[in-house]
């Protein structure tokens, strides 16, 4: 659905993405892993069209609507319901859709609460609902549970599974290997802006092909 061809992004002399060629195909979630600074966030933002490439290309089915949830989503200074409403397209049955989405992310009854007064986990779920309000074919999630407790993390993962089951292509980044194992259909290992390995999850975790993947999974620092 999205194909990176030699995509390169640089900020000054630092290369953040280095000739990345990878394809995200329809199906179960794709999980980006790799140490901090590997280029996961930039890759997601580039796929979303928020980052200009220095060279290469990213192609996307024009009909595929994309949405993203940032690692620290910004809630508008309005109620939870109004945050979802903001992302809805014109002319939808708004009240009903808002209720559906709040239900989906487990925030039923929170609609009137000021979004910024919600807890971190609740805000993360509301951000998910807001992204889903755009009815995306592809959903990017940047470290969706980076600073959440296990219960909130589980809630998020359940939503991701439900969304994926509905046919939405999910691409998420994480540095939590457990999460990658629990969710991934395929795994992309990034290091220093390069794709080191891209394989189906079962294969990647059972028999990684590269030295870096082995070391990363063994808990070593990749420098």
């Amino acid at each position: 659905m999205i194909i990176f061809t030699d995509a390169t992004v640089a900020a000054g002399k630092v290369t953040i993405l280095d000739q990345v060629s990878v394809a995200f195909a329809a199906g179960p979630p794709t999980v980006l892993i790799g140490p901090n600074g590997a280029g996961k966030t930039t890759m997601l933002r580039a796929a979303m069209g928020l980052v200009k490439l220095n060279s290469g290309a990213i192609s996307c089915l024009s009909s595929a609507r994309r949405a993203i949830v940032f690692q620290r989503p910004v809630m508008l200074r309005r109620s939870a319901a109004a945050n979802i409403d903001y992302a809805l397209a014109r002319g939808e049955a708004r009240t009903q859709r808002i209720e559906e989405l709040l239900n989906l992310v487990g925030l039923a009854g929170f609609g009137d609460r000021p979004a910024r007064r919600l807890s971190g986990g609740e805000q993360q779920r509301l951000a998910l609902a807001r992204a889903l309000a755009r009815d995306p074919a592809i959903l990017f999630l940047d470290e969706p549970s980076a600073s959440l407790d296990p219960a909130s993390t589980k809630a998020i993962e359940d939503i991701i599974r439900a969304v994926s089951a509905r046919g939405v292509k999910v691409v998420l980044s994480t540095h939590d290997l457990g999460q990658a194992k629990r969710l991934a259909g395929d795994v992309v290992l990034l290091h220093r802006g390069r794709v080191i390995e891209h394989a189906p999850a079962s294969e990647f975790f059972a028999e990684p092909k590269t030295d870096q993947a082995l070391r990363f999974m063994a808990g070593e620092l990749l420098v």
Binding site: F70, V74, L76, R130, R134
Partner: peptide
């Protein structure tokens, strides 16, 4: 600075951005 990425991701046009920022800065 805070809203930029979020509004870009939500595909909000220039006038919508101004309106949103004014409304959210209302206090």
């Amino acid at each position: 600075l805070e809203y930029r990425d979020e509004l870009a991701a939500l595909d909000v046009g220039p006038i919508g951005r101004i309106a949103t920022l004014i409304w959210d800065a209302r206090f």
